[in-house]
Simulated scan of single mutants.
Amino acid sequence: MQLFSSAPARRGLGVLLGAVGLQGSLGCNSITGVDALRFEACAPRFTGLTSTDEHGGPGGSPFLDECPEGEVLVGLRSGMNGPFVSGIMALCGTVRASETHPYTMTLAPGTTVPIMRGSASTTGPEMCPPDTMVVGFEGTTGPFGDNEVLWSLRLHCAPLLARGTPEAPSLSLGEGTRTESFGGAEDQGEAFDPTYCPANQVARAILGRSGALVDAFGLGCAEPSLACPASRAASEE
């Protein structure tokens, strides 16, 4: 049973709370000593970790760097050595849902995974636009001695959109964008086709192979969902 599920009932509740000493929308009830009613926020969740294809060569050692729970990949710190991408580090963002329906999905600064894959000092971050996250990539590879390595990289990004009822929303991807390419000149390497996370998934990890350079690169992807407590429905008209 949902208490105070209609607008008149909630208005009546507001009058009652005001009469017993609720001081403002965030005040304290003088009888119960409990703060004004708040509804628990919906919680973004990410299920599974699916690997995309990797592009590059077989040199170096394998790596997998995953964002913490509740965070997604929003960019990379990169390093350069001549025409090569010689280092990458994952940058994550924390996904949040608005407190009211219809829900909007935003990103706050998250974790910088403290591991540089490769050997170069970092340069400026290569970031998705605000409130978007990595969903794919494209780039070029080229020879380094007898090995194939990553020459350039460009990230594909998209926002998360929430649709559906207040208590059971669904998430889907919005219109995509691309970052600027970083690394060597794009026309000097062998381009590979854009590579995306599976349908309606977002990136939560980088993976591949690295040694002195970044030998190969791919993404680890997960399916997003939004878990809303039943009490959320009571806050709607």
Rank of each mutant, 00 (worst) to 15 (best):
R96A: 06
R96Q: 11
A97P: 00
S98Q: 05
T100M: 03
Y103V: 11
A108C: 02
T111F: 05
P114N: 05
R117Q: 14
A120Q: 08
S121C: 03
S121L: 08
T122N: 13
T122Y: 14
G124L: 13
P125L: 10
E126D: 11
M127Q: 07
P129H: 13
P130Y: 12
P130F: 13
D131V: 04
D131F: 06
F137P: 04
F137Y: 15
F137R: 06
E138P: 00
T140M: 09
T141E: 05
G142F: 05
F144E: 08
D146N: 12
N147E: 15
N147F: 13
E148Q: 15
W151D: 00
L153I: 02
A158I: 03
P159Q: 08
R163P: 00
A168M: 03
P169F: 09
S170H: 05
S170M: 06
L173D: 07
G174Q: 06
G174R: 08
T177N: 02
E180F: 03
F182C: 00
G183P: 00
E186V: 15
Q188Y: 06
A191L: 07
A191G: 12
F192P: 04
D193H: 09
T195N: 03
T195S: 13
Y196R: 15
P198K: 14
Q201S: 13
R204Y: 01
R209T: 10
G211K: 10
G211P: 01
A212D: 10
D215Q: 04
